[in-house]
Write a protein that binds this DNA or RNA. Structure first.
Lengths: 148, 148
DNA sequence: ATATACTCTATATGATTGATAGACTAAAGG
DNA sequence: CCTTTAGTCTATCAATCATATAGAGTATAT
């Protein structure tokens, strides 16, 4: 399951992407626009900032903006930041490998072999899907749904 | 993350598949062989039985066996049984769709569009991988690792 | 200076996970 | 039958995690 943090983070980033990179967007506005609990969103944005995904400015006229073009912010980084490794089991993770304590022979562990395929498929998708790509999908879906 | 229940369930089922379908295997033996906590395994096997994945026999000479050939037991069923829907968000689930309470327009929700791809990829893998297929992968990996 | 708006730490709490205990029931076999 | 064997079922529990909320603190613009 995707945590609320990841979900809210993606929504917030999409909101920032839509807002544009000219001037910062305030937390309060972002929370209202995306229907996110503001105080919770603050924590999320803080994590995103510490990870270098967004930038912030304090004081009047301050707020948040994307730290780089939406084309270069991948969902994989966001999901890993809040939910940890993509792999269903730690021993199948590429970026955060941890061996199983109990596993007798990892190389031939059935669970690991199957879950490695899942993790690879997930990583292929999330590491190649940028915020900009999501926005394009949204636009395409809107066009499709709109022809009634 | 895959829960321990799912992980143990797959291990136990692989153990039963290896044991063969001639005679039942006792919980205690299965737990020892696969290094699983026995009392916990009992609950897992009970769920698997209620789901029709395994059969049980009571009394002397009793135990558990697969309810159908290993070729026809898919990982997807097992994982769904213990961890729920494969989709990272309920609104992207095929088998257990639940709309988001807050979502303004589901058709163009960016999170949903991206996560639907993840769920489809995951389902493609887990619903097409049988216990027998996993066993073949294990054998192949053993051959590969064994040429030292 | 002062209002603005992000920053940081602490806390609550409810659900979920992983696991254990023990009483109960059905079947086999003498 | 009656005893042994082995699965069945319910309750409970500790620990962890997820989802927030509160409030004091800090930097910035004007």
């Amino acid at each position: 399951m995707l945590s609320k943090k990841s979900k809210y983070a993606i929504k917030a980033l999409l909101g920032l992407a839509e807002h544009g990179s000219d001037e910062p967007m305030r937390i309060a506005d972002l929370a209202r626009q995306e229907s996110l609990p503001q105080k919770f969103l603050e924590l999320i944005l803080l994590d995103l900032r510490n990870a270098g995904v967004v930038q912030s400015r304090k004081g009047k006229g301050g707020g948040y903006l994307l730290a780089r073009p939406a084309e270069r912010i991948m969902l994989g980084q966001v999901v890993r930041l809040f939910d940890g490794p993509l792999a269903p089991v730690p021993c199948a993770s590429q970026t955060a490998y941890v061996p199983c304590a109990d596993c007798a022979d990892e190389a031939t562990c059935g669970v690991r072999l199957a879950m490695k395929e899942v993790r690879d498929a997930t990583a292929r998708i999330l590491d190649q899907t940028s915020l900009a790509a999501v926005r394009r999908k949204q636009a395409a879906a809107a066009r499709k749904g709109g022809r009634s």
